[in-house]
Structures are given as structure tokens and as C-alpha cells.
């Protein structure tokens, strides 16, 4: 199950999308998500679909690889669809007891499914084409204005990148502790939920102790290497916008404008409903 999560994993490839500045990709993902929840009508839906397919093709990430990420949200998809199908009021088609299947319900269910699927595909595309370090760098620089209102942007970005660096180390450590406890007769597999949760205690306590010790060591090592917060710090790999990034922004902007225009055209001029009818 866990290995199916493509969200947050990096897919190394050499493509236009991979080379884009992380800030562009972050802004783009945000804009795409907003557009997904604002659009109305099939014209805009078609545009969003074409746009997504275009980006996936450009990114050189295999389509099947991205789609694998959907497996983890299948339950959420089914539940949302069911909720929308049976609890939307409107013209009733069939009725079972308190459950009413309505035209509006079918529409809403389809709409929500499409939104969720596109949302996952869009965000996975970003994380698949951006290394975690680029992401934190992009967040740090893109959100630097928030420092003025007292948000410790640099510190948060630093914590994120350190967390990413230590994930494999702590995973290995968990494995080691688990084996050590199993060698002394600990049982992590059998029993009910409560028994299993209790069995985790001899695993979690040493793990936390060691994590704190590591944090202490790391803090000292960082201090010894002159770390004193974000002030006066230079960057080894500074983010700089290139012509490609500017074009990407332009493309994003025109996409967003097109989405609004097509939605308005559908509802105001052609007099259509939310999705199809």
C-alpha cells in the first residue's frame, strides 16, 4: 500500500517541466487547483483535461506511473461519489427508502470525481518533477514576503529539508529497533488493534530517544558550522527565473483566463448548467 504512494516521490527525468523553477510549479499547481474548483461547463472541463495531458506529456513521466497514485485515494473517491449520488436533492430518478438517486446527484458525483482525480494528478505531477530540496527552496523564496508578517519562513524550510534528510535514517533505525525487540520476543503482528498499539511502545520509546539525541547532535554540528539563522546567508544554488519560467507563467495565466472565459461563456451566453445539462 505504502509503496503505491506516488505523491511526494521524485521521478528523475530530463524534461522542460523538470527544469522549471520550483516557484513556477508551486504557483502553477495552486492555480490549477483553483481553476478545478471554479470551472463550469464542458468547454472548461475539456480545457483542463487538455492542459493536464499536455503537461504530463511534456514531463516525460509515464502516464501509468502517475495514475498509480490514484490507487491510494480510491476509497475516498467511492465514498465521495456515493455521498453525492444519494444525498443531492433534485429531480428523483429512482428511490430506495431514504436514498434518492437524482439527476443533480449524478452530475455532482461525476464532477467531484473529476475534480479529485485531476487534483491528485496535478499535485503528483508537481512532486514527481521537483526534488524535495527544490521544493523547500521554492517555498522559502516564494513565501519570503510572509517573513514581514512574522512567519519564520527560512526556519520552516530548513526544518522541512532536514526532516527529508532524516526520513531514510529514521526508517532504518525503526527497522533495527524492531528487529532487536523481536529478537527478544516482542510481537508486533498478532492481536487486536489495542494490543498491537501497545506493542508499539517498546518501539516508539527508543526511537524517540534516539531522534532527540540526533536532533541535539545535529544542532551542535550546525552551530559549529556557523549556522545562525537565515540572516546574512548566501545560497549555493540560488533560484533564478529563466526565459522558460517566464513563458510558463504566461501559459499558466492564459490557461486561467481561458478557464474563466469558457465558464462564463457556458453559463451566461449558452445558458448551461454546472456540468452537462
Amino acid at each position: 500500500m505504502l509503496k503505491d504512494v506516488t505523491l511526494g516521490q521524485y521521478y528523475p527525468a530530463d524534461s522542460v517541466i523538470h527544469r522549471l523553477d520550483p516557484r513556477v510549479k508551486l504557483a502553477g499547481t495552486l492555480l490549477y487547483l483553483i481553476s478545478l474548483f471554479l470551472f463550469q461547463g464542458p468547454l472548461a472541463l475539456a480545457t483542463a483535461t487538455v492542459f493536464l495531458i499536455l503537461l504530463i506529456t511534456l514531463s516525460k513521466v509515464p502516464f501509468s506511473y502517475i495514475v498509480k497514485g490514484l490507487r491510494t485515494i480510491i476509497i475516498i473517491l467511492i465514498v465521495t461519489a456515493a455521498m453525492n449520488l444519494f444525498f443531492t436533492t433534485g429531480t428523483v430518478i429512482v428511490q430506495f427508502g431514504i436514498f434518492k438517486l437524482t439527476y443533480e446527484g449524478i452530475q455532482m458525483a461525476i464532477l467531484m470525481m473529476i475534480r479529485l482525480v485531476y487534483l491528485i494528478l496535478g499535485t503528483s505531477l508537481m512532486t514527481l518533477t521537483t526534488t524535495p530540496n527544490q521544493l523547500t527552496d521554492g517555498l522559502e523564496k516564494g513565501l519570503r514576503w510572509m517573513k514581514k508578517i512574522g512567519v519564520p519562513v527560512h526556519e520552516i524550510a530548513m526544518m522541512m529539508s532536514i526532516a527529508l534528510r532524516f526520513i531514510p535514517i529514521l526508517t532504518e533505525e525503526t527497522d533495527k529497533i524492531m528487529k532487536a525487540q523481536m529478537a527478544r520476543g516482542a510481537d508486533f503482528q498478532s492481536g487486536g488493534l489495542i494490543k498491537r498499539a501497545k506493542a508499539m511502545i517498546p518501539l516508539l520509546v527508543p526511537l524517540f530517544v534516539s531522534a532527540f539525541r540526533r536532533a541535539n547532535d545535529l544542532a551542535m554540528a550546525m552551530e559549529a558550522r556557523c549556522y545562525h539563522g537565515g540572516d546574512g546567508r548566501t545560497k549555493m544554488k540560488p533560484l533564478r527565473y529563466t526565459a522558460a519560467d517566464r513563458n510558463a507563467y504566461l501559459l499558466l495565466f492564459s490557461y486561467f483566463v481561458a478557464m474563466i472565459a469558457l465558464s462564463l461563456l457556458w453559463t451566461k451566453v449558452l445558458g448551461g448548467g454546472k456540468l452537462f445539462f
Binding site: P132, N133, S161, I162, L164, R165, I169, R214, D217, L218, M220, A221, M222, A224, R225
Partner: peptide, 12 residues
Amino acid sequence: FQNPDNQIIASI
């Protein structure tokens, strides 16, 4: 320092 893992900050 002593522990190689606890003094490397970056992932590259």
C-alpha cells in the same frame, strides 16, 4: 563530530 549521520545536513 563522532556520528557521521548526525552532522550531515543536506541530502546531496
